[in-house]
Amino acid sequence: MSSENIDTEAVIAKLNQILEMELAGVVRYTHYSFMVFGYSRIPIVSWLRKEADEGLAHAHEAGEMITHLGGHPSLGIGPLLETHNHDIGAILRESLEHEKATLKVYFELLDLVKDRSVFLEEYARRLISEEEIHQGEINKMLRKPGEVGVFSP
């Protein structure tokens, strides 16, 4: 397994898509943190800002991967949904959709590099794991108190 066996252009394009998705997450979670009101504001804002910080770290990592492969990091940003519905449930449902879309792109990267580059495969698998954890956290927050079953929109 060597990175010489990968389609470098396709991998760089996918990494740029990841970079853009992660940057969109930074903007999204930061915006949401401004729009939380009520008794639960402090812990929720703290969680949202932590998610924004983590998204920025993921964006940095994707950019470094791109330049490692000789590519040029995108200045674009992924899609930003603005429903103007800022209750906590809506924010969490929108966050869950963003996490699902980002996870899909990481799986697409994994498909491009699997059994071709240990370095890139391990990167993709680690980020897939982190994104799945995020989805699980959001899913738990969307459940009503006392509910054990997985949230389904």
Rank of each mutant, 00 (worst) to 15 (best):
G136R: 07
S3I: 14
I91V: 15
T102F: 02
R93A: 11
S74W: 08
H31K: 15
R28F: 10
E61C: 03
P153V: 15
A90P: 09
G146C: 10
E22R: 08
V26T: 06
H134N: 07
K114W: 00
K104F: 09
A62D: 05
I44D: 03
E108M: 00
T83L: 13
L19E: 01
G63T: 10
G70L: 05
E132S: 12
M141C: 11
L19C: 04
N16Y: 06
E9K: 15
L23H: 10
F151L: 06
A52V: 03
S33E: 03
Q135C: 12
M35A: 09
S117K: 03
E9W: 07
S74R: 06
I66Y: 03
F119E: 13
L112S: 02
P73A: 01
G70N: 07
K140C: 10
L48D: 02
L103N: 11
G76N: 12
H86P: 12
I44S: 04
E99I: 13
L19K: 06
I77K: 13
L120E: 06
V27A: 14
R116D: 02
A52N: 04
G89C: 14
L75V: 15
G78C: 06
A13R: 11
L96W: 12
E54Q: 03
A24T: 05
V11M: 00
K50C: 03
W47Q: 08
V36L: 02
Y32V: 06
L109W: 05
E122H: 08
S117R: 02
G38C: 10
M21T: 10
E132I: 09
S33V: 06
H58S: 08
E122G: 09
S117G: 02
G78R: 08
P145W: 08
L110I: 07
A59G: 00
G70D: 05
V150T: 15
Y29C: 00
F37H: 11
E99Q: 11
E122S: 10
I133P: 01
H31Q: 11
H60F: 10
L69N: 04
S33P: 07
E61I: 02
A101M: 14
A57R: 14
P153I: 15
V36A: 02
V148M: 14
A59H: 02
E108P: 00
I128D: 01
K114C: 02
E147I: 07
N139I: 13
I6C: 04
A24H: 02
E61A: 10
E64K: 12
L112N: 03
I91E: 09
Y106P: 07
T102G: 05
S95K: 10
M1E: 07
Y106T: 12
E82G: 12
D53T: 04
I91C: 10
G70W: 05
A52Q: 05
Q17N: 08
I66C: 01
N85E: 14
H134I: 07
S129Q: 11
I66V: 14
I88K: 10
D115G: 05
E131K: 11
V118A: 12
Q17Y: 00
M65F: 05
S2G: 01
R28W: 09
G146M: 12
A101D: 15
S2Q: 11
Y39P: 13
E22A: 03
I18C: 05
K140R: 12
G63H: 04
